[in-house]
Design a protein around this nucleic acid. Structure first.
Lengths: 227, 227
DNA sequence: CCATCATTCAATTGTTTACTTGAATAATGC
DNA sequence: GCATTATTCAAGTAAACAATTGAATGATGG
């Protein structure tokens, strides 16, 4: 092997490793996951990922140096967003690999979610198919801005915080499938709990918009459909 | 946010980060790239990635702890292989993100490959289409074992080391497209150089079997087609 | 059973990294 | 112009990491 091709390889893999390093810290992955749901300010990210603002800012700069996210100053705030849809693809790829291959992942779900939704049969693919076929009422319980940034076609938006107030907007008879940010977000679990107490037929879908898009399915943007 | 859902999230993202950490070192990425071409022993990997055997072994154990690769003892040797095709998908995703978003990547290619193939117009997609359409003779210059583990359908196998000896097996008139392990592997560049000196119409295709498969195209296995 | 060979282990080095704290910068409204 | 607020910077600490070296393990063939 020639000396110059060794140097080339070292330099090339080092660049690829810049991306790898950026996604090697749990907190940065959480930030990326959040950013894949839509743009956010530093403070919002810090709060939602349970980080100090300074620490969040530092992580965001590492993500930015790896060109995975972009920042834009908007008056007093700085808004961060993913730099490319491919970035969400990378995150999905990492998460799905962790879930497929790390047995600890299933263990964690069992440990922390036991008393709640963990006992549910996981219908995964089948549930997504029914959602896609329009056989159920789909409920997006994330904050409205995230709903607007992209949601499952036909989904109704009622943020978890407003669910009790607005519960009358939902159909009593039809089955309801609630989703939120993805498997590590528990908002949909809470929503299902609330709905069932009031006599609704509700179920949680673990998958979020990322998984939806990973299957090559279309998302809907902006428009806020009436329930 | 409840305390228990915070713990759940922390634990979940930490697992995802195990995968991220595994792909955060340049040398581990090089090892993964090699393993995506086919299984190998520790010594072969160490030699091909320019690592000490002990160091390579250590990196491989980190990859194995993240369940990205598997090891099997075969007599005196230990054979490593990727644990899942999805792992190659992750590597491709990282590499393509690095190439799309890190400007330094293009700079590196320019710097190290200047006098050689870098001046060539990069035809990328168009070239792959012609290869796929069977308009050219496709030449796989990797070692035979890698060819056997998976190659572009219809490709002829002549490892770089044997090219000069076996050059008569190739058609003089038809255009030849040579490929190897991927963009950071320079064997195909050498091959094209040799071929052109002997009057062949030859071109390098930067993409390897990983990129081929990333497009959802079929690979051929085992059979060694006659040129 | 002994020598050989591939691989792993263990201990050590110098670097890098995540997080904390407190101060600095920069845009906004009074 | 001055106080307020969001973000970044800078310095420090403890932990994690990559690479080196030399010894240990464990399978193979004489």
């Amino acid at each position: 092997m020639s000396n110059s091709s060794r140097k080339f390889k070292d330099a090339a893999y080092e660049q690829v490793a810049r991306i790898g390093k950026a996604v090697s810290a749990p907190k940065r992955l959480e930030l990326l996951d959040l950013l894949c749901q839509g743009p956010r300010t530093v403070e919002a990210l810090a709060q939602q990922a349970a980080l100090s603002v300074a620490n969040a800012s530092q992580h965001l700069q590492i993500l930015r140096a790896a060109r995975l996210v972009e920042a834009e100053k908007k008056g007093l705030y700085v808004e961060y967003r993913v730099a490319d849809e491919q970035v969400c693809g990378l995150f999905t790829s990492l998460r799905s690999l962790a879930e497929a291959r790390l047995t600890e992942m299933a263990q964690i779900t069992r440990t922390y979610l036991t008393e709640r939704a963990a006992m549910e049969p996981v219908e995964g693919d089948d549930l997504m198919r029914r959602v896609r076929a329009g056989e159920v009422t789909v409920l997006d319980v994330r904050p409205v801005e995230e709903y607007r940034a992209g949601h499952i076609p036909g989904a109704v938006s009622i943020p978890l915080a407003e669910l009790k107030k607005r519960i009358a907007e939902l159909p009593k008879r039809r089955a309801i499938v609630a989703y939120c940010r993805g498997p590590y977000c528990v908002m949909a679990i809470d929503a299902v709990e609330v709905l069932r107490k009031r006599g609704f037929r509700a179920q949680r879908m673990e998958q979020g918009v990322l998984d939806w898009r990973a299957r090559g399915w279309r998302l809907e943007k902006g428009t806020e459909a009436a329930p």
